[in-house]
């Protein structure tokens, strides 16, 4: 399976470097942004699966704004918020706005990797479900066309049978005439 691409957004160069090294060692593709502006640029230019963003950053694009930008571009992008203990309320706020999780500083890498593995699994399941529903809808629309044709044809034949029965039961005309009429009707119906 394709490795996930993770965008790390943090204004602290030490944390950025550490996250980049550890995540790459785990086999993830890593992109780095020093602030919200760079993050926005990368989000619009590249395919990103997961954003790992600090909550508090200088400038007007903080973690919450990065979350909003990512979700706006593609709601399938999962965002994990990194936060100091003192701003947990804001982190909860972020979860309400669609963040999948938050991590407290200092980052526990085992915890981070577990969460990323869960996201990988979940995305694989989602892709599988999408494939299945795509296959189902292809099969369904092919079957629908056949069934529609049969349904209409059947109704036409039923109508024809009713008309033939009405003629055959009509004792106002001779038996020979009835058979003639029915034969003409069958010929016209182009069976």
């Amino acid at each position: 399976m394709r490795e996930m691409t993770i965008l790390v957004v943090d204004d602290d160069p030490v944390i950025r470097k550490m996250l980049e090294k550890r995540l790459e060692k785990e086999g993830y593709q890593v992109l780095i942004a020093e602030d919200g502006y760079q993050a926005r640029k990368l989000l619009t230019q590249q395919h990103i699966d997961v954003v790992l963003t600090d909550l508090m950053m200088p400038g007007s694009i903080g973690g919450l704004e990065v979350l909003g930008i990512a979700k706006n571009i593609n709601s399938n992008i999962e965002v994990i918020i990194i936060t100091a203990h003192s701003s947990i309320d804001t982190a909860v706020e972020a979860m309400k706005k669609g963040a999948v999780d938050y991590l407290e500083k200092p980052i526990n890498f085992d915890e981070l990797f577990l969460r990323l593995a869960k996201i990988t699994n979940l995305q694989a399941i989602i892709r599988n479900a999408q494939d299945l529903s795509q296959a189902m809808s292809t099969t369904e629309s092919a079957a629908a066309l056949t069934i529609q044709d049969l349904e209409i044809r059947n109704a036409e034949l039923q109508g024809l049978c009713n008309n033939i029965a009405a003629i055959l039961h009509n004792d106002q005309i001779s038996a020979d005439d009835r058979i003639d009429k029915v034969l003409t009707m069958l010929a016209d119906s182009a069976l």
Binding site: E140, A143, A144, I147, Q148, L150, E151, I152, A155
Partner: peptide
């Protein structure tokens, strides 16, 4: 449903086609 049929189920209904739907 698009793959369902009323043939043999309810003669009180007649099918009609409009574009790609019934």
């Amino acid at each position: 449903g698009s793959t369902e049929s009323l043939t043999g189920i309810c003669p009180r209904f007649i099918p009609k086609r409009h574009l790609r739907s019934i």
